[in-house]
Design a binder for these strands. Structure first.
Length: 185
DNA sequence: GCAAGGATATCG
DNA sequence: GATATCCTTGCA
């Protein structure tokens, strides 16, 4: 379990940074699904990114989960991180494997899910989780309300979307908990 | 600073 | 059917 400390908002075709910018396609179909369901996609051929579908059924929008502050299950998060790291080319050799493993061991708990690709690696989530009802208490992957709730929230431009053009790239649709060490670098 | 990696949307 | 590109990461 982790506390969500960094997210980004993505809209419909009008949002030139969104996967929905080309309308409905096989990949983004889940973005048009019911709110509270999951949209997981593979990015850069290696990392999965977890989104929460937010808009009404039939409209496209989602919130990308960019970072978690781990609260429990850190041993399993490390196992998940290790499994994903093992697929990288640098870990194909015995020497690379040893370095990757040593690096992960030096990684503090608060950095286990400090990035969108790291969130899914830590949780063991991949694209097959697309469509999961995140609001069902019976789901293995789910959202829960945080008792005691609100902390201060900062906002700024979304990351890695320069292709969208300055008008969209400058929108302050990245939200995070200021000062939290688990926010991505 | 930049390669790895595979799916994907678009173009020919 | 081929190809430029991608909501990233960890290495040089």
């Amino acid at each position: 379990m982790g506390r969500i400390v960094e997210v980004e908002a993505y809209g419909d075709a009008a949002d030139r940074a969104s996967h929905a910018r080309f309308g409905r396609t096989p990949r983004n179909a889940a973005m048009f699904g019911p709110p509270g369901s999951a949209y997981v996609y593979l990015v850069y051929g290696m990392y999965d990114c977890l989104n929460v579908v937010t808009g009404p059924d039939g409209s496209a929008s989602a919130v990308l989960i960019r970072a978690l502050a781990p609260e429990s299950g850190m041993a399993r998060m490390r196992a998940g991180r290790s499994a994903v790291a093992g697929r990288r080319r640098s870990a194909r050799t015995a020497d690379g494997q040893a370095r990757t493993s040593a690096r992960l061991e030096r990684t503090p708990d608060y950095r286990l899910a400090s990035g969108p690709g790291l969130v899914t690696a830590a949780l063991g989530i991949d694209t097959t989780w697309t469509g999961t009802d995140l609001c069902d208490p019976g789901s293995a992957l789910r959202l829960e309300a945080l008792p005691g709730g609100s902390s201060e929230i900062a906002s700024g431009p979304r990351i890695g979307i320069d292709y969208a053009g300055s008008a969209h790239a400058s929108l302050p649709w990245r939200l995070w908990v200021p000062g939290d060490p688990s926010v991505s670098g």
